[in-house]
Amino acid sequence: MKLAPFWSAASAAIVLTLAAAPAASSEHTDAAIGLPVPAVQALDAVSAPVAAPVAAVAPAPAPVVRRAFYDADEQPLAPGAFVWRPELATAGPVEMVVSIPLQRAYVYRGGVLIGVTTVSTGRPGHATPTGSFPILEKRREHYSNLYNNAPMPFMQRLTWDGIALHAGQIPGRPASHGCVRLPLEFARLLFAATRVGGEVHIVDSAPTAETALAEVRGPTEIGVEMTLASLR
């Protein structure tokens, strides 16, 4: 079963209608997330007094709406890119599945997909271990005591011998000393969402966002239809 787009036909129609209407507001796109930032109304044209005729103003450009999630086969994320949609699930434990072959991670809250990101795992000779790991410790500012005091921003420790999630360079291939590197902004957002004890699953397979949780938890432990309800 393929992931259905977030936008229903009715929602798409609303978006197209809003995009076509002239707007006296400003809008920009958040380059890190790739989603439009809502415009802010600068002036109430109904209540504001009119002192003199005003020249016509060209309508603002239509907002760019992009799909928030998609299968790896359809439109892969570029190295360092990610998508973060925490509003899709506001309660429940946060759980993460990291795929070494895909160099990608999926984040779920209460079993609902809320994030997809590119990662960089361990390079040859420094393999990232597979398995399920609880988050043992969290530090916003941390430095490696193994590798020349290297910075590890937004560190979330998975093992006591040096494996962690943290912000770092994402070159599109395994390049770390065994840690799971995350894009800086994504690492910050994830750090705020997780708790000590949260589960991080690292797999040597290539699951989709739809199958990843079932793979690590077993198909009988997760209601797939409920998990994907917000994606339809």
Rank of each mutant, 00 (worst) to 15 (best):
E141I: 13
E141Q: 12
E141C: 00
E141W: 04
E141S: 13
H142Q: 05
Y143I: 00
S144W: 05
S144L: 08
N145L: 04
L146H: 05
L146I: 15
L146K: 04
Y147F: 15
Y147G: 01
N148F: 05
N148S: 15
N149W: 00
N149L: 02
N149V: 00
P151M: 08
P151I: 01
P151R: 10
M152N: 02
M152P: 01
M152Y: 10
M152A: 08
M152V: 10
P153Y: 08
F154H: 14
F154V: 04
M155E: 13
M155H: 12
M155P: 03
Q156H: 07
Q156V: 03
Q156W: 03
Q156A: 14
R157M: 15
R157T: 03
R157S: 13
L158G: 04
T159F: 03
T159L: 04
T159N: 12
W160C: 00
D161C: 01
G162P: 14
G162V: 12
G162R: 04
I163K: 03
L165M: 10
L165D: 07
L165A: 01
L165Y: 01
L165S: 02
H166A: 05
A167P: 00
A167W: 03
G168Q: 00
G168N: 12
G168V: 01
G168H: 01
Q169T: 08
I170N: 01
I170G: 02
P171V: 13
P171S: 11
P171R: 06
P171F: 11
G172L: 05
G172W: 09
G172S: 10
G172V: 07
R173E: 05
R173Y: 12
R173L: 10
P174W: 00
P174H: 13
P174M: 08
P174Y: 07
P174T: 09
P174E: 11
A175T: 11
A175Q: 07
A175H: 07
S176H: 09
S176V: 06
S176L: 06
S176K: 00
H177L: 03
G178F: 04
G178A: 12
